[in-house]
């Protein structure tokens, strides 16, 4: 489990805190989406989970982040990396090799995985992510979505308990974006991997995530199941977070009819709601 306690962080040279007194518990096996306007501190929070902050990115760090009981500030980044895999916003810069196979091997080699186990881990990672056919391809010949999958596979090979992703679909088209989220769902459901994903596309989060944390001005201002968080559309709008049309539909309908209408998280629920109302 990830236990973030009163975390405050200010980047070196910055005039304001990027995170202000953030407290958040993320249970094992959760699929958490983090959303919020630009500059809310989403990336900072994501980088704090795996210990990139404070180990690689310097600044004033107050409070504590514990992953499986390990305090990120007291443990080496290398040790934390066995627990948490982080996918950065700029995927391109995260790739260290020029061939897919080498990229997957990189972490396995460094962490000293026994030779006879490496092949098995490689097959697992490539198979799980669905890119077995790309094993011998060069990175430069891959599309954006494929590169994203290679980076995820390179982390999955290390079998972390937690996967943190910072806007993994930022540069992808709708169908590749959905593929990435389906992949995250299968890792979450089949292997119980905890998934923490920063994402602007609210509809993807509503479809795939179980919990939502909404950030604004360095704070976590909402934290709950997707349904709970979507219950307060006016509040989200005020923060600057978009809502799926299905939720707007149910909320406006409730206004129009002057009675309680349950929140429609996705299109299916909206259709169902409408049918039930019409009778």
């Amino acid at each position: 489990m990830i236990d973030i306690r009163s975390l405050t962080f200010r980047y070196d040279g910055a005039e304001e805190d990027a995170l202000r007194d953030v407290t958040l518990e993320i249970p094992d096996g959760a699929f958490l989406g983090i959303i919020g306007p630009a500059g809310a501190g989403k990336t900072t929070l994501a980088l704090s989970v795996g210990g990139i902050i404070p180990h690689e990115i310097r600044g004033d760090f107050y409070g504590a982040v514990k992953v499986d009981g390990l305090d990120t500030a007291d443990n080496k980044l290398t040790d934390l990396s066995r627990l948490v895999g982080t996918v950065f916003q700029d995927v391109e810069s995260q790739i260290v090799s020029s061939v897919v196979e080498d990229e997957i091997l990189y972490g396995l080699e460094n962490f000293g995985i026994p030779r006879d186990e490496i092949e098995e881990r490689m097959d697992f990672a490539l198979g799980q992510v669905g890119i077995a056919g790309l094993r011998h391809r060069t990175i430069s010949s891959l599309s954006g979505g494929q590169r994203q999958k290679v980076v995820i596979a390179s982390l999955v090979a290390l079998r972390p308990k937690i996967l943190v992703l910072d806007e993994p679909t930022g540069e992808l088209d709708p169908s590749s974006s959905r593929q990435i989220f389906s992949l995250l769902r299968s890792l979450n459901r089949e292997y119980g991997m905890t998934v923490v994903v920063v994402e602007q596309k609210i509809m993807l989060l509503c479809e795939f995530a179980e919990r939502l944390a909404v950030m604004s001005e360095g704070r976590v201002v909402r934290d709950g199941t997707v349904r709970e968080v979507l219950g307060d559309i006016a509040g989200l709008e005020a923060i600057g977070v978009n809502c799926p049309r299905s939720a707007l539909f149910s909320s406006l309908l409730s206004e129009k009819l002057g009675r309680e209408v349950p929140v429609a998280v996705n299109a299916d629920e909206a259709v169902e709601t409408a049918r039930r109302i019409i009778g």
């Binding site: 169908s175 049309r245 539909f249 049918r275």
Partner: peptide, 19 residues
């Protein structure tokens, strides 16, 4: 074209059969 219609169109389309 590997596209998904916007959510509101999905909802409207599926309700269409009924009214």
């Amino acid at each position: 074209a590997s596209l998904l219609p916007p959510q509101i169109v999905q909802i409207a389309g599926r309700l269409g059969g009924e009214f």
